[in-house]
């Protein structure tokens, strides 16, 4: 009993901070989402409108487009980062030359703030100044103008995110791979299983908890990407890279449409939770089925 009380006392400060910084803002956003509130409207006071904001969202083409773009972006970066990260993690656990140097360089992007990553990529890609458009034009005759061609902008944003966050996936998977038990792998080899079979049926199966954690972290990060993209493309050209975080920011801050923006935030939070839950059920369900 005493232990339990001490435990609660020890975690009380953390719970208090979480309550203030997490729960209270959430309730505030929840309440605001039921109001029409734009401080630059003729009536700047909040007006209760029930579920109108949510109803409007269902038909809001700009919102639906930004959701679709975000899901597309998330799918691209998540799959790419897992494949490349797993490949690099396996490679870096072997005795390859210059392994240490590569691991250090590979990890460097993780230390850069997202806004600085966006700024760096902007400098690399801006026409008339950046080396990438210059060399693509002079070597291959390719017009690489992010602000004019939506596909190029989207692809560059995806590549930037992969460059920035793959090292995190690599490091996490390296930790997971280096903790795998040796016995099942050795037994499989003695039984004559192919390397592919060993990887698919044993390595991946043991790696599943680490994979699941990594996927969750990256999924949530990708769904709320704002600063890198804001710096690189500003959401353009047009609205072709205006992911949901950026879209909400524009609605809430420059447009000061607080009620509608809050409703968007809640729907996005709901979607994120649903996606994580589906993923969790899918991955743990697979395990149970196999068992």
């Amino acid at each position: 009993m005493r232990n339990s009380t001490t435990g609660w006392l020890l975690i009380a400060p953390t719970l208090f901070i979480l309550f203030i910084t997490g729960f209270v803002p959430f309730i505030y956003v929840l309440v605001v989402s039921f109001f029409d509130w734009n401080t630059f409207a003729q009536n700047p006071e909040p007006t209760f409108t029930g579920a109108d904001n949510f109803r409007e969202l269902v038909f809001d083409k700009a919102f639906l487009k930004s959701i679709w773009l975000t899901l597309k972006f998330t799918a691209f970066v998540l799959i790419s980062q897992l494949v490349i990260g797993l490949f690099l993690a396996r490679m870096l656990l072997r005795n390859v030359p210059l392994k240490g140097l590569f691991r250090t360089i590979h990890t460097l992007p993780l230390m850069i703030a997202p806004i600085a990553v966006g700024a760096t990529w902007r400098l690399l890609t801006v026409p008339g100044l950046g080396p990438i458009p210059h060399y693509l034009k002079s070597w291959f005759g390719i017009d690489y103008i992010l602000s004019r061609f939506p596909d190029q902008a989207f692809a560059t944003v995806v590549i930037m995110d992969i460059w920035h966050w793959t090292p995190l996936v690599t490091l996490t998977l390296m930790a997971g791979l280096s903790n795998l038990p040796e016995e099942p792998l050795e037994q499989a080899r003695i039984d004559g299983a192919s390397e592919w079979r060993i990887f698919w049926d044993i390595t991946l199966a043991f790696l599943k908890p680490v994979l699941l954690t990594t996927i969750f972290i990256r999924l949530m990060d990708a769904l709320r990407t704002v600063d890198e993209v804001w710096m690189l493309t500003g959401g353009g050209p047009g609205a072709e890279t205006r992911f949901i975080g950026l879209h909400i920011w524009r609605v809430v801050f420059p447009k000061t449409d607080y009620g509608y923006g809050s409703a968007m935030s809640l729907i996005t939070l709901y979607l994120t939770i649903v996606m994580c839950w589906l993923l969790y059920v899918a991955m743990t369900g697979m395990k149970e089925n196999k068992a």
Binding site: F40, A62, R148, P150, G238, E240, R250, P254, K255, T256
Partner: peptide, 22 residues
């Protein structure tokens, strides 16, 4: 206009669309 940024935010995306050619 007291609604400067509000109208700009809803109109500007269409100007961007015209620039990009969509």
């Amino acid at each position: 206009y007291p609604f400067h940024a509000q109208v700009r935010e809803v109109v500007a995306p269409f100007i961007y669309e015209a620039i990009v050619g969509t």
